[in-house]
């Protein structure tokens, strides 16, 4: 097995794994659980993308992964803020302990 083949297989494996995690989205029961599944898919997707990019030597894919990492983090933060302020207002409850 050549290196690109291995990386492609690994990419498919990671993708299948995190896709299984999507069952959590179906099952819930809470928004937080669904969010976790989405986050897992986010990092798994980034990993799969990187593997794919290196396997096929498509440089631009790394930039896509970079953008994805940045904005996935942003969306996650927005989501947690959304949960923590049901009325759309901010609160101090998001502080760390």
């Amino acid at each position: 097995m050549t290196m690109p083949d291995f990386l492609l297989t690994a990419s498919a494996f990671v993708l299948v794994m995190v896709a299984l995690g999507l069952i959590r989205i179906l099952r819930g029961p809470e928004d937080v659980d669904r969010m976790m599944a989405a986050q897992l898919l986010g990092s798994g997707g980034i990993a799969a993308l990187l593997l794919l990019g290196v396997a096929t030597e498509a440089k631009a894919v790394i930039d896509v992964a970079l953008t994805l990492a940045l904005l996935a983090a942003f969306a996650s933060v927005a989501f947690v803020q959304g949960i923590s302020r049901p009325d759309g207002d901010d609160s101090k409850e998001t502080r760390g302990e």
Binding site: L15, L52, D63, V64, L68, L71, F74
Partner: peptide, 23 residues
């Protein structure tokens, strides 16, 4: 985003990653 990468359209993938998922 992954689909666009597979379709060899990195420009669109980049836009989708930034717009579709993030903002």
């Amino acid at each position: 985003t992954l689909v666009w990468v597979r379709l060899a359209a990195p420009d669109v993938a980049l836009t989708e990653a930034a717009m579709g998922g993030g903002l």
